[in-house]
Structure formats: C-alpha cells, structure tokens
C-alpha cells in the first residue's frame, strides 16, 4: 500500500557521484532517522521529458546510494535524481538533486599505467580510462573518444636527487631516456581535460628501479 506522506524528514545532500560516467546517486539519511530501519525509494528524470521514472532496483532499499549509470548512459542528456525516505507506513517528501550534466561533471579517472625499466630509461604505456559499460560484452568507449582534448600530466620523481618534474603528453606511450641506472623513480599520471574546472583523479604513485649498468657490472667481474 502506498505510504502516507507525513512529516518524515527528507534525505539530505542528494547528489550524483560520477567517475568515467559511472553515475551513482548518493544521499545522507535524514536527521533523526539514523540507525532506524528506514528505507528509500529512488526515481530519476531525463531533463525535458514528462515523467519521473522508477528505478526498480532501488525500491525500498536500506543503503544510501543507487547506481543510475544504466539510466543516465547518454552523456549528452541531463538528468535529475530524487529519493524519499519510508518508515513503516510513513514517507517523506522527495529530495532532489541539482540538474546533472554527465558530460560536464563526470570526474576523469586515472589511466592504466604500465612501466618498463631499462638501464637508463623507463618506458611508460598509458591506457586511457574507459567510459562505464552497460555490460561487459559491449565494446569499450575510451574517455579519449568522448573528450578528444584529453591529455596526461605525467610526473616523475627521482628519489636520489629528490627532484620531481612533469611532462604533459597527449599520446599513450612515452619514454624517459638518459636516467640514472639502478635508481628508484616514482611516476604518477593524471588524465585531464583542459577546460572548466573538471575534477580528475591521479593514478597511484608507481615506483620502479632502473636496471643496473651492465657495462660497469662486466668491468667489476
């Protein structure tokens, strides 16, 4: 039976959290209902269309997030999400997000970074982050296809000289030649799109040691 819209407080801080177009609606439980067996129901709307649509997987759920990636897959559209709290027969009013623009607001995740050490060099191969996929079999869509101006900010830190410097590149392979052999270097890469203040997540710091200098090894033997 439908719940009775009573004075139950609404969920708060209802927002989309989005990385590589994986768009998750999240919220905080309303004041005063924390710890109780309150449940939630979610709906979403494509801006400009007539009806709010139910998200069946997020009906009467007790968690405070709901993955709407499938429903907000077209990143050229804009969306609203809303959620209400239900406690027994009582339910709150809807609490709504701001208008969500995936193309403008998604955070760019880090690329996959593969390092290969040489004697005096490190080769770096980057794989662009991918857009969230509706199902595993679908072809991947690289975030590079969606954002053609996607670039990489590659930082390299020489643990021996304690110096860190940056390279800004657009291609996916680069090499750091003329390094010191048998030295630990740490590399971190951040994909970013020049333009409005778009958040970007850097990769984890990956450290690798260049190989020992073979010629001096032979000399020693």
């Amino acid at each position: 039976a439908p719940c009775v819209s009573s004075g139950l407080p609404k969920p708060i801080n209802v927002t989309f959290s989005s990385v590589n177009m994986k768009n998750v609606l999240q919220w905080n439980s309303p004041e005063g209902l924390r710890g109780t067996d309150v449940v939630y129901t979610v709906q979403y709307l494509i801006y400009g269309q007539k009806r709010w649509l139910n998200k069946s997987e997020c009906r009467n759920i007790n968690r405070t997030s709901c993955d709407l990636s499938y429903d907000t897959y077209d990143h050229e559209e804009q969306y609203y999400g809303r959620v209400k709290a239900i406690w027994g027969k009582h339910c709150s009013k809807w609490a709504e997000t701001e208008r969500f623009n995936p193309w403008l607001e998604t955070q760019i995740g880090p690329p996959v970074v593969a390092l290969t050490p040489g004697e005096k060099s490190i080769s770096v191969v980057l794989t662009a982050p991918e857009k969230w996929k509706r199902n595993a079999e679908n072809n991947s869509v690289s975030m590079h296809q969606i954002y053609p101006t996607l670039k990489y900010n590659v930082s390299i830190y020489n643990t021996k000289t304690n110096k860190k410097w940056y390279k800004f590149v657009t291609n996916h392979t680069l090499e750091f030649p003329q390094l010191e052999s048998d030295t630990l270097y740490c590399i971190r890469v951040q994909a970013y799109v020049p333009g409005p203040r778009r958040k970007a997540k850097p990769s984890d710091n990956q450290c690798i040691t260049t190989l020992k200098d073979q010629t001096s090894e032979l000399k020693v033997k």
């Binding site: 009806r51 701001e98 208008r99």
Partner: peptide, 23 residues
C-alpha cells in the same frame, strides 16, 4: 569556451534551481 563555461558553472546551480519546469 573555457572562460564562458567557467562563468556559467558559477551560476548553473543557482539558475537551474530557479527552473521548476523540469518536464
């Protein structure tokens, strides 16, 4: 684009919240 879009991002939340006709 960048400058115009940055300026718009500063008013997006405020102005879109004033728009009650989502449909």
């Amino acid at each position: 684009f960048q400058e115009i879009r940055n300026e718009f991002l500063e008013i997006k939340g405020y102005v879109q919240a004033e728009d009650e006709n989502l449909d």
